[in-house]
């Protein structure tokens, strides 16, 4: 039986038969369907995925006319991280003029709203210069990062220390107090950047510290939208699932803990977000086929229910892409092409 080049979720190369790939596609999709209580993929979708995984071509793309917007978060940091020593404005220009990015984000290396707050007035002139030096829509963005508000990094008692001591109520109260400060910081920084001309505000890796982190993101979005009705806000998630670190927080009557992408997007819509970036995480011990079928099952359900544009996260460890510092082009192109072909989405 023919063997095809394939990869595991950690990027390692393996040989698999078409039968093995198909079995993994079905298993991956069914895992998502089971967790999210959403439909698995249909036969023709499995067949399409099998075709691209069995294709001998290194690079896979979409049919002309099916291209979507490519947008990047934290890219001003990523280009320096790989050793290209340019400043942030030059980084934005490289992405726009050389790499064809459709939207970009200016970000500070600390990449969280709390540390940006005291230097926000230093960030404003850089944003203003960046806006003059680029043509594409330019976001200012950072992470909500609620973890920075508990001791030793912040003023509030650390819930992860309180919980093992049996102080559950106190841990929950600490999350509730911390999220109020986080909301203030996001609104403060977001307002300054919007007033400096940012085309949008990005709240990246929302929910990283669990349901309280996600709730703060939603409330901050609501407040910014009330203050500036025309503001564009993108909420990009940290992971596929909202962790119940507090566990009992609700937004618009819905419990946030345990929500998957198709439920999260409804919350983002209700808060007034303009774009939503859903996530599906990669399992390194499963094959690329398993991961991609699973990611598409989640993203498809999200896209079908969304009333705002969605830009699924595609990159190292998300969207079916393997966990490599430099994700291989075979996997990135297959995942991107499949996501764009099979899901109702507006960008990646």
């Amino acid at each position: 039986m023919d063997q095809f080049f394939h990869r595991m979720g950690d990027g390692s190369a393996v040989q698999m038969t078409a039968k093995q790939i198909m079995a993994d596609l079905v298993e991956g999709s069914e895992d998502a369907a089971d967790r999210g209580k959403i439909p698995p993929l249909a036969k023709e979708e499995y067949d399409y995925l099998l075709d691209i995984f069995c294709s001998p071509h290194k690079f896979i793309s979409v049919e002309p006319g099916r291209e979507v917007i490519l947008t990047y978060d934290a890219a001003t940091l990523k280009i320096r991280r790989v050793g290209v020593h340019v400043d942030r404005i030059q980084a934005l220009q490289i992405y726009e003029k050389i790499m064809g990015a459709d939207t970009m984000e200016l970000a500070h290396v600390d990449y969280s709203y709390k540390p940006v707050k005291p230097i926000a007035t230093f960030e404003q002139p850089i944003l203003e210069q960046a806006l003059l030096a680029t043509h594409i829509p330019l976001f200012y963005g950072a992470q909500p990062n609620l973890g920075l508000y508990s001791q030793p990094d912040g003023p509030f008692p650390n819930p992860s220390e309180l919980m093992p001591m049996g102080k559950i109520k106190e841990a929950q109260e600490s999350y509730e107090a911390a999220l109020e400060d986080l909301v203030k910081d996001i609104v403060f920084v977001g307002s300054l950047m919007y007033e400096s001309g940012a085309d949008g505000i990005n709240l990246d890796t929302a929910g990283a510290a669990g349901d309280a982190d996600f709730l703060a993101t939603l409330i901050a979005t609501e407040k910014l939208k009330a203050k500036y009705p025309d503001i564009c806000i993108e909420i990009g998630m940290a992971g596929e699932f909202v962790l119940g670190m507090h566990s009992q927080l609700t937004y618009k009557g819905e419990r946030l803990a345990g929500m998957y992408a198709h439920q999260q997007v409804k919350m983002a819509e209700a808060a007034g977000a303009t774009i939503f970036g859903p996530v599906s995480n990669t399992n390194t011990s499963k094959s690329a086929a398993w991961n991609l079928a699973r990611a598409i099952t989640f993203m498809k359900a999200c896209g079908e229910i969304a009333n705002i544009p969605i830009h699924p996260n595609m990159g190292m460890g998300v969207g079916g892409v393997t966990v490599n510092d430099q994700p291989p082009v075979d996997v990135v192109s297959r995942s991107s092409a499949a996501m764009t072909t099979l899901c109702r989405l507006d960008g990646l």
């Binding site: 967790r35 559950i168 699932f241 119940g244 670190m245 566990s247 009992q248 803990a257 345990g258």
Partner: peptide
């Protein structure tokens, strides 16, 4: 099933 989380489990256990 992902319907209950650590704080709730701890409360039940207590």
């Amino acid at each position: 099933e992902g319907d209950m989380f650590i704080p709730e489990v701890l409360m039940s256990a207590r």
